[in-house]
Write a protein that binds this DNA or RNA. Structure first.
Length: 583
RNA sequence: GCUGGUAUAGCUCAGUUGGUAGAGCAGCGCAUUCGUAAUGCGCAGGUCGUCAGUUCGAGUCUGACUACCAGCUCCA
């Protein structure tokens, strides 16, 4: 690499830099724990990791010792030398060095693969590279081991659990500090913490994975649902509600039982087998079948805010982000193949509108059908091409994600980027030729004959619960006016202003706002502090001056004291802000 | 589910080598009527996650279970 490549702007260099640091980690582990067996240790998005098989378990104290050893290795300025070996010699070398995992990796390499090693001092590792030329190039003070945890060999839950050490490294200490600050910021925004502090929602031991929503959290939920209804009505959707429990036979018909029974909850009613729905679509199919439809009724757009239950593994649960009961903002479109292009594009535009409203950037991923796709190859190829064409013909950029689609079809996923740069998969558009077939859906064509519609399964929020979790972290609890559980709080300075404060609060309430008052005999600074911590968008500080003039002194949570305005002007501007849903 | 860790008041945390619990904030009461992020004083609040065990004695030691945390796996 030439000198001007020595920067993290160059992705290749960054990878080589971090990969080299992971080798330094492995070398340090081998020095301190000679019996440790090496598995793999790649560079990843935020740094690197290395997996080891050791007798003793690593602890944070171990990490400190390893970090010190790594710094020594950096100081030793060991040069990295690459060499290649024929397969048998490579296996022999790794066998001699007692590295069974490396031997397994070599045996699994393709016949014609070049087998290369990197050597630094006494340390040798099987590795394709590339690497830096010297361990001294790694900045010792811009490197940190962040955590240690278990990880399965080759990512397989049936294989042995190894010990993984995560670390990160940069070219400058400032960059490391900035990274660590970002981690701290994420902790500060943790929706589990904010959810409790702002009294939005919580999870209790009594219902792992089953969230409680408190009055203030319900305000946010209801506002999100109102907006969803408003938008879907405008986009020509009808709304339905289908049952949470349906008989087991339905789930055999849909294919969910075959593909998903481990994650479903079952129950018995009058001796018959029933299942709690993990998805809304089968219910949607039955709703479609209530009567015969004409081709003139298509495309038929149907939405459902449906509560689904999925048995997630206990270790996978995480606040509102991963729960066992959640509400999907499902929207199904029944249509003909001629409709497909415009309908898919319409949904893309709809989802775009929703994300923009919250200030999310996003990117799309096209996921093709998985191995266990239930349709034939012709449909697989055809449906994937339809999605691809919509994206290509409309100049949409996307990432290809092979084999990650649903068992009934390919999909376009929306990955949004939040205020501190994390990505979340939320929206989805799934093209499905299978369910209409399985449920024998029909419509009468212009030719008078019966035809089979196709369908789209779509969601924008994905899960309302999870979306609220994401929004909480995105806004750090400071929700835009239209979502804020309390939109304004009236803070009289003394009891003399109590009547005026009550009048102001009543006026705001009449204008449709969620208002609170704080009449406690506390100093104004105390009341303001509390309102700030509750992240209430507007505080109205009212004293003798305001009562005399009929004005209100406005304080915003972000901008502090805004001075006095007339109550009417304030209410008008608030109405505008609420209506436009700006943030 | 797997690996490791954690569990003390509503919240955040102290609690020495085992000798039967403590602070701040929040809550309640009283005083204070104050102009943009914490007024003072007082009161109340915990069978120390649950169940066993060791011990004269367990918040402290052991085991099982539950939940949570960090990852892994999974997320149709």
């Amino acid at each position: 690499m030439s000198d001007n490549n020595y920067t993290f702007e160059n992705e290749e260099y960054k990878k080589a830099y971090r990969h080299t640091t992971s080798h330094i980690l492995a070398q340090a582990v081998k020095r301190l724990y000679p019996d440790a067996r090496l598995a793999i240790g790649p560079a990843i998005a935020d740094g690197f990791y290395y997996d080891f098989d050791t007798a003793e378990t690593f602890t944070p104290e171990t990490l400190d010792a390893l970090e010190a050893e790594m710094k020594k290795i950096i100081k030793e300025k060991l040069s990295l030398e690459r060499f290649e070996l024929p397969r048998e010699d490579a296996i022999q070398l790794m066998t001699e060095r007692e590295e069974p995992y490396k031997v397994e990796l070599i045996r699994d390499l393709p016949e014609d693969a070049v087998i290369s090693f990197y050597k630094q001092g006494e340390f040798v590792d099987l590795c394709a590279g590339p690497h830096l030329d010297n361990t001294g190039r790694v900045k010792a003070n811009a490197m940190k081991l962040t955590s240690c945890t278990g990880a399965y060999w080759r990512g397989d839950a049936n294989k042995k659990m190894l010990q993984r050490i995560y670390g990160t490294c940069f070219m400058k200490k400032d960059e490391l500090d900035e990274y660590l600050a970002r981690i701290e910021e994420a902790k500060r925004r943790d929706h589990r913490k904010l959810g409790r502090e702002l009294e939005l929602f919580a999870l209790y031991d009594e219902g792992p994975g089953f969230p409680f929503f408190f009055p203030k959290g319900m305000v946010i939920r209801n506002e999100l649902e109102s907006y969803w209804r408003e938008l879907h009505q405008e986009c020509g959707y009808q709304e339905i509600k289908t049952p949470i429990i349906l008989n087991e036979e339905l789930w055999h018909r849909s294919g969910h039982w075959d593909h998903y029974k481990e994650n479903m909850y079952f129950t018995k009613i009058d001796g018959e087998d029933y299942a709690v729905k993990p998805m809304n679509c089968p219910g949607g199919m039955l709703a479609y079948k209530r009567r015969m439809w004409s081709y003139k009724d298509l495309p038929m757009r149907v939405g459902e805010l449906g509560l689904v239950h999925r048995h997630e593994l206990s270790g996978a649960l995480h606040g509102l982000m991963r729960v066992r009961a959640f509400t999907q903002d499902d929207a199904h479109i029944f249509m003909t193949e001629e409709h497909a292009h415009d309908e898919i594009l319409g949904v893309i535009q709809k989802i775009d509108r929703i994300y923009k409203l919250f200030g999310f950037e996003y990117h799309m991923e096209l996921s093709t059908c998985p191995e266990d796709f239930i349709g034939d190859d012709k449909v697989r190829e055809y449906s994937e091409r339809i999605l691809k064409d919509v994206l290509d013909k409309n100049g949409k950029e996307y990432v290809l994600n092979p084999g990650d689609g649903a068992f009934y079809g390919p999909k376009i996923d929306f990955h949004l980027v939040d205020a501190i740069g994390r990505t979340w998969q939320c929206g989805t558009i799934q093209l499905d030729f299978q369910m209409p077939e399985r449920f024998d859906l029909e419509y009468t064509g212009a030719d008078g004959a019966k035809h089979r519609p196709i369908m789209l399964h779509t969601a924008a929020y994905g899960s309302i619960e999870r979306f609220i979790g994401i929004l909480t972290e995105h806004f750090a609890g400071a929700f835009p006016l239209w979502l804020a559980p309390v939109q304004a709080i009236v803070l009289p300075i003394t009891d003399r202003s109590r009547d005026y404060a009550e009048t102001v609060a009543a006026r705001l309430k009449d204008a449709g706002f969620r208002v609170e008052t704080d009449f406690r005999s506390e100093k104004i600074g105390y009341k303001i502090r509390e309102a700030q911590m509750q992240k209430i968008p507007y505080m109205l500080v009212l004293g003798d001056k305001e009562a005399e003039t009929g004005m209100v002194t406005v304080r915003t949570r972000a901008g502090g004291d805004q001075g006095a305005v007339s109550l009417n002007v304030f209410i008008d501007s608030l109405k505008q802000e609420k209506k436009t849903r700006v943030y």
